[in-house]
């Protein structure tokens, strides 16, 4: 089962490597990891997607909390949160296929952010499923390059992590 962890950490050099090496040496797998500074410039927030049962999640959480630079760890439940990923997809495109690609992008509320004679770049945000769906549809035209951020998530409503 997949879990999304919001991890608040001190915004210091080396923290990412402390977190990543903890996962490696304890044998936990990271599906994705996104990190950036928060509204407080002294604090960074990592969104880490891991899979494992409740026992693994418990261990990940307590081990993370043991790191001195980790301020707190919250398991964000999917039904209770806004979750987003962003992908940039460079698709092969010519005069004949361009219109169809634009149509697909519109349906997914994605944006065309670059056009060249033989390709187009699509920017799409959404949850994992949406990004997989558009990727699948664009594959027929030939995906030349694709980059995805890890997932980021915020709890809905007034609640904070």
């Amino acid at each position: 089962m997949k879990h999304t962890l919001a991890v608040l950490v001190e915004n210091k050099s080396g923290v990412l490597s402390r977190v990543a090496s903890l996962f490696a040496r304890r044998g936990y797998n990271i599906d994705s990891l996104a990190v950036g500074v928060t509204e407080d410039p002294d604090i960074s927030r990592m969104t880490i997607v891991v899979h494992g049962d409740g026992h693994v999640l418990e261990q990940v959480t307590t081990q993370l909390n043991k790191l001195i630079d980790v301020i707190n760890v919250t398991d964000i439940r999917a039904d209770d949160a806004v979750e987003r990923e962003l992908a940039l997809i460079k698709v092969a495109a010519d005069v004949e296929t361009r219109a169809e690609i634009i149509q697909i992008a519109n349906i997914f509320r994605a944006r065309i952010v670059d056009v060249a004679p033989k390709s187009m770049t699509v920017e799409v945000t959404g949850d994992e499923g949406k990004i997989q769906a558009i990727e699948k549809l664009l594959r027929q035209f030939g995906i030349e390059e694709m980059v995805r951020t890890g997932k980021i998530a915020l709890v809905r409503g007034a609640k904070k992590v």
Binding site: H55, E58, Q59, T62, Q63, N65, K66
Partner: peptide, 8 residues
């Protein structure tokens, strides 16, 4: 004293 040892 170490929460990570509980049920490890």
């Amino acid at each position: 004293v170490d929460p990570a040892e509980i049920s490890k």
